[in-house]
Write a protein that binds this DNA or RNA. Structure first.
Lengths: 222, 222
DNA sequence: GGTTGTTTAAAACACCTGTTTTACCTTGAG
DNA sequence: CTCAAGGTAAAACAGGTGTTTTAAACAACC
C-alpha cells in the first residue's frame, strides 16, 4: 500500500480491510496489516484499541461502502427469475472480486465459516439485508403457494451453492479439475465465476419451478 | 472419556478423533486431547511424533471405519431419485451425528472449510469416494442428455446445500429462527436434520428434473 | 522559543501452544 | 534381585502473536 496518501489511521483501515477479507479475523496477523500500511505495530492499539477494535472499524467502514447491491428497486423491472440470476451473479462477484467493494462480501463469508465476536453485528448489518432480499426474490419465483419456511430453505439452498465455491476451492479443484479456477488469469477466473453463477441460478430456478408446480397441484384443486 | 479401557495410545486416538472432528485440526488443542484421554501432554509426541502425526493416525483410523456408506450396491435397487435422497440423508447424518461413525464426515467437512497438510490424502481416501458416488447418482437422475461438466456442477450444488448447514449453523439460526437446531434435544435435532435433508433432496431433484427435460428438448429433436 | 498534547517507533512483555527434556515408574527377563 | 526397556509425568523450552511500555519526533499554541 502506498504509505503517502492518507493518515496512518486510514492506511491501517485500508490494509486491515484487505487482510481481514482475505485471511479472516483469526488468521490475519496485525504485523502483516501494519507492514502493508507502513505503520508501526503499536499503531493498531493506539488508534483502534486492539485487533478487535480494528476489525470492528473495518466492518463499520465496509457498511458505509455497501453500495447499491442490496437494492430490490434496481431490479424491480426484471422478472423474478432474472432478479434471482442477478442476485446470484452479484453475490458471487462480491465473494471473488478484488478491491474494496468486495470486502463486504468476503467478510460476510468469512464470518459464516468462522464466526467472531462481531457475528451479531455482521448478521444484522450486512448479511440480513442480503438474506431478506433473496428471500423476497425466492418467494416471488416460487409463487404464493409455497410457505415461508420452504422459501427460507430454498434461499438457504441458493446461498449454500454460492458459498461452497468460496470456502471449498481447493477441494473442488481436486475433484473437478476441469473447473479449476485460474487464480492468476483474471479473465478466465471471471468467466468461471460467470459460468458457475449461471449454473447456480438455473439449477435453483429449475428447483423452484418444480416446487411452484407442485404447490399449485397440491393447493389449487384442494 | 474412560481412561480405563484401553492403552494410552488408543485412548489418545479416540479422544483426538472427537476433538479434531469437532474443532478441526488448527483449533484443536493437544492439551485438550490429552486431558480427555487422561494422558500426559508428552504422550502425543511419544506415540505419534507430534500433532500432525496424531491427525494422520486419526485419519487412517477413520478410513478403516468407513462403514458401508459409500456403497452404490446397497442402493442398487432404488430409483436414482431415491438414491439421491438416501445419499443426502446419509451425508447429513454423517456431519451431525455424534460418536465414532461421524468422525469421517466431520473431518471431511472440516478439511473443506480449513484444509491442512493432509488435504490430498483426505480428498483421495475420504472425499472422492463420496463424490464419485454422488456424481454417478446425479448423472442417472439427470439422464443421458446432460454432459459431465453440468453433472459435476449439479453434484457440487447438492454438496453445497448440505455443507452450509454444518458450517454456517450460527448464522442460519439467527436468520431463520424457526429453523433453530435444538442442540441439546437429540430428537428435535434429528428431526430438523431429517427435514432439511428432505428439502435438499427435493430441491435438487426438482432442479435435475428441469435440467433433464431441457436436455431432452434441446437434444432430442436435434 | 518554550510548552503541551498528539503521534510514531523500538523494544520488551505476557500469553498461548506445540515440542523437548529430564527424571521417574513399571514391567519382565536373566 | 538386577537390570534393561518401554512408558509416563512434570517441568522447561521455543516460536509466534497480541499487547504494553517507554521514549522520541512532531505539531500547534501561548
Amino acid at each position: 500500500m502506498a504509505p503517502s496518501i492518507t493518515t496512518t489511521h486510514d492506511r491501517l483501515l485500508e490494509a486491515a480491510g484487505e487482510v481481514f477479507a482475505d485471511a479472516g479475523f483469526r488468521e490475519a496477523r496485525i504485523r502483516d496489516i501494519c507492514a502493508r500500511a507502513g505503520a508501526n505495530i503499536a499503531a493498531v492499539n493506539y488508534h483502534f484499541g486492539g485487533k478487535e477494535g480494528l476489525y470492528r472499524a473495518v466492518l463499520e467502514h465496509a457498511e458505509c461502502h455497501a453500495g447499491g447491491a442490496v437494492a430490490l428497486d434496481a431490479m424491480a423491472r426484471l422478472d423474478p427469475e432474472d432478479q434471482l440470476r442477478a442476485f446470484v451473479r452479484g453475490f458471487m462477484a462480491r465473494m471473488f472480486e478484488q478491491g474494496k467493494p468486495a470486502w463486504q462480501g468476503k467478510l460476510m463469508v468469512r464470518e459464516m465459516a468462522d464466526p467472531t465476536e462481531a457475528l451479531d453485528r455482521v448478521v444484522e448489518r450486512i448479511i440480513r439485508p442480503h438474506w431478506e432480499l433473496l428471500v423476497e426474490i425466492v418467494a416471488r419465483v416460487a409463487g404464493p403457494g409455497v410457505d415461508r419456511e420452504s422459501v427460507e430453505l430454498c434461499a438457504a439452498s441458493v446461498i449454500g451453492q454460492c458459498v461452497l465455491y468460496r470456502n471449498c476451492g481447493p477441494i473442488i479443484d481436486r475433484l473437478s479439475p476441469g473447473h479449476r479456477q485460474a487464480r492468476n488469469d483474471r479473465e478466465a477466473a471471471q468467466a468461471t465465476i460467470e459460468r458457475t453463477a449461471r449454473h447456480i441460478a438455473d439449477f435453483s430456478l429449475g428447483a423452484l419451478a418444480a416446487m411452484r408446480a407442485r404447490a399449485r397441484a397440491d393447493g389449487g384443486p384442494a
